[in-house]
Simulated scan of single mutants.
Amino acid sequence: MSDAPTDAQQACFEAGIKFGSLYHQFAGTPVSPASTDSLETAMAEAIGNQPHCEWVSVDILDDRVADAIDHDEGYAELTGSLMEVEMRIDYEGTAVRTRMTMEEGYPRMRLVAIEN
């Protein structure tokens, strides 16, 4: 029989759930430089509704969105390469800070710190 997860392990798990939800729920959403602010807010508020989520910051990078538009319709599809995300998840008094940024062409979701 294995031991129960620690609060830190559970907090990390919760952060992973939030990142998976954020990324896969919103990937492919049409976005233009004019709509980044409202999409950032919608994403942060949607993920912020989940249990143990203390705060979420979504930054959709307007310059990358503009560069990604490759047709006359004026929008691109949202991908990890167009945004940076930070979260703080608090589980039973143990908080984890996480970040998603591009690393070598891939959106990496990383644990930044565990805070007790």
Results as ranks from 00 to 15, higher is better:
34 A>L: 06
41 T>L: 11
114 I>S: 07
103 E>I: 12
27 A>F: 06
114 I>G: 03
70 D>C: 07
74 G>Y: 11
30 P>W: 02
35 S>R: 09
95 A>R: 15
68 A>P: 08
19 F>I: 03
24 H>D: 10
11 A>E: 04
66 A>C: 03
105 G>I: 10
59 D>Y: 11
13 F>K: 12
27 A>H: 02
58 V>Y: 09
15 A>P: 06
15 A>H: 04
58 V>Q: 08
89 I>V: 15
34 A>I: 00
45 E>V: 04
3 D>L: 05
85 V>E: 07
95 A>T: 07
99 R>W: 06
19 F>C: 03
27 A>E: 10
93 G>K: 06
29 T>I: 01
112 V>M: 15
22 L>R: 02
84 E>M: 08
55 W>R: 14
26 F>W: 13
13 F>P: 00
114 I>A: 12
28 G>M: 05
18 K>C: 15
81 S>F: 04
81 S>M: 13
98 T>N: 09
63 D>L: 09
75 Y>R: 08
79 T>Q: 07
50 Q>C: 01
59 D>F: 11
82 L>V: 06
91 Y>V: 13
87 M>L: 14
10 Q>M: 14
13 F>H: 13
85 V>W: 10
49 N>M: 10
105 G>S: 10
111 L>C: 10
36 T>D: 01
86 E>R: 10
116 N>P: 14
3 D>R: 01
18 K>H: 10
1 M>T: 08
16 G>F: 05
17 I>F: 02
40 E>M: 13
88 R>N: 12
65 V>C: 11
97 R>E: 15
94 T>R: 00
52 H>D: 14
61 L>F: 06
107 P>F: 08
72 D>R: 12
113 A>G: 09
5 P>Y: 00
104 E>L: 12
54 E>T: 13
81 S>Q: 12
89 I>W: 08
18 K>T: 09
57 S>P: 00
24 H>Y: 14
94 T>S: 00
12 C>P: 00
103 E>A: 13
74 G>A: 09
49 N>H: 07
98 T>C: 15
37 D>F: 02
45 E>R: 11
93 G>Y: 05
